Simulated assay, not measured.
Amino acid sequence: MGFGVAIFIITLGAILKFAVNADLGPVDLNAIGVILMIVGIVSFLLQFVFARQLGSDGPRRVNGPAGRDTSHDGDD
């Protein structure tokens, strides 16, 4: 799931929790809304943590900046 999907799930859960007043018998829309909000928040937080871990070192460059070869010690 991406960040957008997590936000969509949170929004859908909030709509079910706070805006829908339907009685579907044994189905509790308030509980489903709360569950969706919790799942969306946990997903968002996990993605944020993983994205920070992956991006902490920045992109790996094989040839250094601007494609210049930095593997030698400067003695040509």
Rank of each mutant, 00 (worst) to 15 (best):
G2M: 06
A6S: 15
I7N: 03
F8S: 12
I10T: 05
L12H: 04
A14H: 08
I15V: 15
I15R: 01
K17T: 10
F18R: 10
F18P: 04
F18Q: 08
A19F: 15
V20R: 09
V20F: 08
N21Q: 11
A22S: 03
D23Q: 01
D23P: 00
G25R: 01
P26R: 00
L29T: 04
A31K: 14
A31L: 13
A31T: 12
V34R: 07
L36S: 09
L36F: 15
I38Q: 09
I38A: 15
G40R: 05
V42T: 07
F44W: 12
Q47W: 02
F48K: 06
V49S: 03
V49K: 09
V49H: 05
A51W: 04
R52N: 01
L54N: 09
L54G: 11
G55M: 13
S56P: 00
G58K: 03
P59I: 11
R60S: 05
R60H: 08
R60L: 07
G64V: 02
P65M: 13
P65L: 15
A66D: 14
A66C: 04
G67D: 03
R68N: 09
D69W: 04
S71T: 11
S71K: 08
H72Y: 13
D73I: 05
D73C: 06
G74C: 00
D75Q: 12
